[in-house]
Design a binder for these strands. Structure first.
Lengths: 355, 355
DNA sequence: TCGGTGTCTTGAGTCGATTCAAAAAGATCA
DNA sequence: TGATCTTTTTGAATCGACTCAAGACACCGA
């Protein structure tokens, strides 16, 4: 390791360590001549300040941890980019950690970050109600939940996932679909649950308002719209493909005509499976994804998707965190909620005529 | 911040600080009764070990920095995942930093990581010949170049980009293309240059071996294959789209029949532009990308792409780093080079008949 | 020459955990 | 019981940078 320390610099510049420290931190109070001597010594020795020691003394780090469910998901890459951009302006470093939706990994990262005394933690939790998050906050590490609303105990930024699910449901129903599949991820992930609730509410509203209260054969009670939900083990392209294959294997009369996937990775996988089994999108199967990642627009069939302000989520999270760090006393926890919006593309843009 | 420190724990457990430290680090040398008392005190006080102080004392951190050109590129997400997986097994944390291909940002991250005295740095440099990297190594922070071969001064893992470019070129020529466009990123990025060199060599080999040495009208000297190269300002979907639009605007007789893009993001953007301008892929324009990210297979037209062992790159980089850290004296810098392989999909899978 | 007033510089003490020589406590045996 | 090991525990010194009260120094006017 760079063994040159402030002491050696002081020796070479023929000043005390205090003066070197002053040059580093408040150069204006040091006389120009001394300052120059010190800078020269620093350059000559290739001195690099030991941030660890500095941090130990001043007790405050300039890094924040960002724990996401899946680094490989472009949605989180965009959130991270937003966070990074704002953090950068405040001379702060964002370290990105991947929990891979695994509570154990999440816990390990939380422990590591707390032990490193980071300035704060932004997290998209596997389980938002975990007591660990409250403990962290209580012990003094501010936590901001990202893409997941908090119950007042901490700050959070989120997009209204129920609304997003609702919009997607209304859209599909409006396009004439009467049997819809929801492809979710693990139930434990709150976003999945909320998006499911959203489309569920859209479906039951459709039942209530639909004319003719008779029970149609094969339809749900009180209306013609039926919703099936499958919860896959992960929100990945591979599991989307699995779901798609399972759907393709169903006999036509049982098969839904539309799928709402809890994120775009699932949707892209699902779409691939449709192509592989000769099902046309949107004719045989309409698809709506979630997140509106850049790749959604570039898919085999351009994908309809519920969009979220991804970078803004990241920026806002950093903003809330910095606010809390700056004035821990005055700070009141806030829950910021953004609105999703549906981007209709080819994958669902077809009016389905009744059978 | 968690203000409970080892001293308070010691007080409550009625032992010395040395004993608490022992319980934390070598519990087996402490008698069971004492150990229990200490653990109880830790639990009761909610003590969290201060990794900063520990690090200052032992002089060695358990984190490595990984600086990539673009976090939003799934290629790097996969590399990061590979690195993370292996690091995890060694109880080491990977922090991901984004240089966004900007030398200034890269430098800032290098500075920060060095100041934090990380165990080592994995980097896909904007400029591999930058003296900063050598300085870092000289001052004691091991550096491993990722996806970019080193000249013996440090370790590196890479994929043979010239070979990759060559394979792509041979494939397109073999499919009958005689006018090929190379869509690159900034020339300063080594990968871009190498991939260009690769396809250039494929083209000149084709000229040499092609029967009939006559100069064809519109063809290059000595053969019928022509290569044009455009270097875009960034390896992004947006710039791919720009390139595609520029190509689409060309009169048919001047327009290439195939494009080899320096990465899949460019290729996906290029593909979108083709669709937007009514050019059919692969009939009017064949496309080959690079990296074979998961989204390549899911594109509007499934994308041919030169594949790289992405996660293995990350794993190997960590492996080399750990090896160097473990035995700094014995360690000899190594350059690991993997082979790329072309995955042919629909976007280039068509034999073009001569005009 | 002295006191006063700024401007710089100094260096011991501090942050929290680890280390290790040395002391203390136990165990074993003659 | 005392001598000799062995097992535990102790606590001062240490890592490197920062802080701040106190000291050194220069300059000015009386």
């Amino acid at each position: 390791m760079s063994t040159t320390n402030i002491k050696e610099v002081a020796q070479r510049a023929r000043v005390s360590v205090g003066t070197v420290s002053n040059v580093l931190n408040r150069p204006e109070i040091v006389s120009p001549a001394t300052r120059k001597r010190v800078f020269d010594a620093i350059r000559e020795l290739g001195f690099v300040r030991n941030e660890v020691a500095r941090h130990l003394r001043v007790g405050r780090s300039r890094t924040v941890g960002l724990i996401v469910l899946d680094v490989a998901n472009p949605f989180f890459a965009d959130v991270a980019q937003g966070a990074d951009a704002l953090a950068d302006e405040h001379d702060t470093m964002v370290v990105l950690c991947n929990s891979a939706a695994d509570p154990a990994r999440e816990l390990r990262h939380l422990d590591q970050l707390e032990q490193q005394r980071v300035m704060g933690i932004l997290i998209t939790p596997v389980d938002a109600s975990s007591p660990r998050l409250a403990e962290l906050a209580a012990r003094g590490t501010p936590v901001v939940l990202v893409d997941s609303a908090a119950a007042g105990l901490q700050c959070s930024v989120a997009v209204d996932d129920r609304l997003g699910g609702h919009i997607a449901g209304v859209h599909l129903i409006e396009r004439g679909h009467r049997k819809i599949l929801f492809v979710g991820g693990p139930r434990s992930i709150k976003q999945v649950g909320d998006r499911h609730l959203g489309i569920t509410s859209a479906v039951s509203e459709a039942r209530d308002t639909e004319p003719g209260g008779g029970v149609e054969p094969g339809g749900g009670p009180g209306g013609g719209v039926e919703l099936v939900a499958w919860f896959m083990p992960a929100l990945s392209v591979a599991h989307g493909r699995t779901a798609g294959e399972r759907v393709a294997a169903l006999p036509v009369e049982e098969r839904p005509t539309a799928a709402f996937c809890a994120n775009d990775l699932l949707a892209l996988g699902f779409l691939q499976a449709m192509a592989a089994h000769g099902l046309r999108v949107p004719h045989d199967m309409a698809i709506v994804g979630y997140d509106d990642i850049d790749f959604a627009a570039a898919a085999t069939v351009p994908l309809s998707s519920v969009g979220q302000p991804r970078e803004l989520l990241g920026r806002t999270a950093i903003d809330l965190l910095l606010e809390e760090v700056a004035e821990p006393e005055l700070h009141r926890h806030r829950q910021v909620i953004f609105q999703p919006d549906l981007v209709v593309r080819q994958s669902s843009d077809l009016h389905r005529s009744p059978p």
